[in-house]
Computed example of a mutant assay.
Amino acid sequence: MSYKVHPFWCVEKLLSPAKNSESLPHSNVAVLSHHIPKTAGSSLRVAFEQALGAKNIYGVYANTGASAMSKGEEIWLPSKAKVLHGHFKPHINHTKTFPNAIRAVWVRDPLERLWSLVGHLLALKEKHPHYILLKEKLPESSLKSHETIVKELVLNNTIDAFTNTYSRFFSSVSIDEFGFVGSKHKYEEDLQQLSDSTGIQLKTLQVNRRTSQTYQLPSSIKQLESHLHHEYEIVGDFL
């Protein structure tokens, strides 16, 4: 996912191009908000923007340093950024680079997350690169329905990043090392807890939502839980 950088930041980067590092920590950042796809991350980003203003929330995505951030490397950040939100993995270096930041992440039932992800890709089709990946990796016969795609992914682990999302995400930093872990299944309750933990008054918002039918797991998919037991072991206590 690419991110539209605020014009104000473009000017700041030209005037002050220095990056942040362990030797020059970014102490103003209060929250490292890790967005695992299809776990209500888009709603959370908007909630942060409404609470603090868009200029204080910096999106860390493919075009703004997500890869480097995931490796614990230096990236450029606005001097007044209070929340970093995006698709970046946790790294041990972050505790030194962002000494005052709480690590926050949201999780969701692994099968439901995968079902929602596939529904999202089917809705966007070629507009999303991961849909193109589905077409490249899956047998044509599996692309006939939402259900057959999910079955193929789970039973054959055709795209490891889709079915082992939590195993990959928490490979360097355990979920137990996060200051906050929210559940998509109790969003409002946990959002209040995040507000209390950070002192940022966040309001419940829902964006990027599909129809309720899209989220309803067929019984045949629910029966596949044992195939993702390793994923449930990681997030089960937080759901």
Rank of each mutant, 00 (worst) to 15 (best):
N56Y: 15
A161K: 13
M69Q: 10
L205G: 03
G236W: 07
A62V: 15
P90G: 00
H230R: 04
S195K: 03
P99T: 03
A81R: 05
E152Q: 15
R168K: 08
N157C: 13
T165S: 09
S33T: 03
N208W: 07
S141E: 15
A68N: 09
H120P: 01
P99E: 01
Q192H: 05
A62W: 14
V29Q: 02
H229N: 11
S33R: 02
Q216I: 09
W106D: 00
L138D: 07
L44H: 04
T97W: 00
L14T: 10
S167L: 05
E188W: 00
F98Q: 04
G86D: 02
S172T: 13
D190F: 00
K13S: 13
M1C: 00
K144R: 15
T39C: 14
S79F: 07
L15I: 04
R45Y: 09
S42G: 06
S145Q: 15
N157Y: 11
N93L: 03
L224T: 06
S220F: 08
D160C: 07
R113W: 03
R108H: 05
H94V: 00
S2R: 13
N156V: 01
T148W: 06
V118F: 03
S27Y: 04
L121M: 06
T204Y: 00
Y131E: 11
I75A: 09
R45V: 11
R168N: 09
A68R: 12
L153G: 03
K96T: 10
L239F: 07
A47G: 06
I159S: 13
I75V: 13
F8L: 14
F178M: 11
R209F: 01
K222R: 10
K4R: 14
W76A: 06
Y61R: 05
S27V: 10
E73T: 04
K127T: 07
Q206L: 13
E189L: 08
T64F: 01
A81C: 08
